[in-house]
Structures are given as C-alpha cells and as structure tokens.
C-alpha cells in the first residue's frame, strides 16, 4: 500500500495541548474522507496516548516534548506517539485493562484498552529511562461521497 502523505510534529507535554494534537491528527486524515466515527476513534486513541505521556512519562512534563508522527496510506492511517521519558517498567502489567499506577488520582486504567479498542493495530515498546513509543494503525472507512 503506497504512502500518500506524512506528518511530524512535537509539542510540549502540557495537558492543554491534548485537544490540539487529537484535532491535528484527525484533520490530517480528512483527505481520505473518513466517516465521522473513524475521525472520533482516531481522536480518542490519540488523546489516550498523549494523556499517558503527560501523566506518566516525565517528572516535568511541561518542559518536555511529546512527538507525533502520522503516515497516510490509501486505506489507513498509521500514528506514532513517542516520548523520551522514564519508560514503563512492566509493560504487560501496564497494558492490563483497569490497571493504573495512580488509583488515587481516579485514573480508570483504560488508556491502553481504549487505544486498542478504537484502532485496528496497537504496538507499544518501552525502555526504562529512555521512553515509550506507541504505534497505532486505523483502517479508514470512507464516508459516502
């Protein structure tokens, strides 16, 4: 499947940037004319990945970056959300539905589950002290012309 378009951006890991990032990624794939449901799924999954960076990756998130890359293919969008933060010690545990390292903050522990549910492929890699990379792919159902 041939690559149509590519996008890279980085923003400070501030919670106020979440809406900007999810809207930017959604706007980027509009050229494929996706359904509203697909756009909403992408926004939800991106928001979860960016929230994780803001909440977990850095001691000083507002001074560090979240890196976003997107690649548009004829039938799908691939999204990478990356940080250079602390990494996840136990990835298997972190990806369990309802698991949260911050229950006192009323975290639902559903971030990775939502990324998985709202996209078609999810791959997470993490190295302690080096950072975490989340790769997602969403197949694009086209809206009726």
């Amino acid at each position: 499947m041939s690559l149509i378009n590519q996008m890279k951006m980085s923003v400070l890991a501030k919670s106020g940037n979440e809406a900007f990032v999810r809207s930017a990624v959604a706007a980027f794939c509009v050229q494929l004319n996706p359904t509203l449901e697909v756009i909403n799924d992408i926004k939800t999954a991106v928001s979860e990945a960016v929230t994780n960076v803001i909440v977990h990756a850095y001691e000083e998130p507002e001074k560090n970056f979240v890196y976003i890359e997107a690649e548009l293919f004829e039938d799908s969008l691939s999204i990478i959300i990356k940080d250079t933060g602390c990494g996840i010690k136990n990835l298997e545990e972190a990806m369990q539905p309802m698991f949260t390292s911050k229950p006192e903050k009323e975290r639902s522990g559903m971030g990775f589950t939502f990324m998985q549910t709202f996209t078609d492929e999810l791959e997470v890699s993490s190295e302690t002290g080096a950072g975490t990379t989340v790769k997602m792919r969403k197949y694009i159902k086209k809206a009726e012309e």
Binding site: A19, R22, N40, K43, T44, S47, E48, T51, T100, K105, E106, R107, S108, G109, M110, G111, T113, F114
Partner: peptide
C-alpha cells in the same frame, strides 16, 4: 463532544 478515559475515571469514581 468528547470524553476519554480520564473523564470516565472521574465519573466512575
């Protein structure tokens, strides 16, 4: 128009 797992956690609690 939009909610994510952060909002869900707040509501469940």
């Amino acid at each position: 128009k939009f909610i994510d797992s952060t909002g869900i956690g707040m509501i469940i609690s």
